[in-house]
């Protein structure tokens, strides 16, 4: 066990956990930020995507020790009122079916648009390919990203 000082959604947080604990489980079990989802545990599905200093990162493979000193943003902190352009576009296109993967999809999409405000179809495919949607909402995700890109 060790103390870690984290900056999550602009707030400093202290946790006392094993240094190997992935950020995912610190968020979910210790900080009650359960919007970040467990899907595979091996960075293959993207359900656990968060932003680490603005980059989309799979939190299931990020040891807590590596998150110290970085700005962590989770789905809960993406916007004050759920009104980030990506979130608004997700509602406009009524993207979710089961909804489980969508926080990860939104975090990947928001990171993409922050770096590339007008992505091409190929850019979107490349940036989003690590996020599985078992319900198959890929077309709506792409359409929502394009809508969001126009409302940044």
């Amino acid at each position: 066990m060790a103390q870690f000082n984290l900056n999550i959604n602009g707030k400093s947080q202290q946790v006392d956990v094993d240094p190997n604990t992935p950020l995912l489980w610190v968020l979910r079990d210790h900080l009650d930020l359960v919007g970040t989802k467990f899907g595979c545990g091996i960075a293959q599905c993207g359900a656990c995507t968060i932003h680490l200093d603005g980059n989309a990162v799979r939190s299931c493979q990020l040891p807590i020790s590596a998150a110290e000193g970085a700005q962590v943003t989770t789905i809960e902190g993406l916007s004050e009122n759920g009104d980030h352009p990506v979130q608004k576009a997700w509602l406009e296109h009524d993207v979710p079916q089961c909804g489980y993967c969508q926080a990860g999809q939104i975090m990947s999409a928001a990171a993409l648009l922050a770096q590339n405000p007008s992505p091409s179809d190929t850019d979107i495919d490349n940036a989003m390919n690590g996020n599985i949607c078992r319900c198959g909402t890929y077309l709506r995700i792409k359409a929502a990203i394009k809508t969001a890109s126009q409302n940044l």
Binding site: L33, V34, P96
Partner: peptide
């Protein structure tokens, strides 16, 4: 066409699923 009634909760990461559930004194 009516929008998904849980849409807002889904896109803001609210606890909706059993895996998100937690109560005082809960073990894993």
């Amino acid at each position: 066409s009516k929008k998904n009634v849980d849409g807002q909760k889904i896109i803001t990461g609210k606890p909706l699923f059993a895996i998100d559930h937690k109560v005082e004194g809960m073990k894993y």
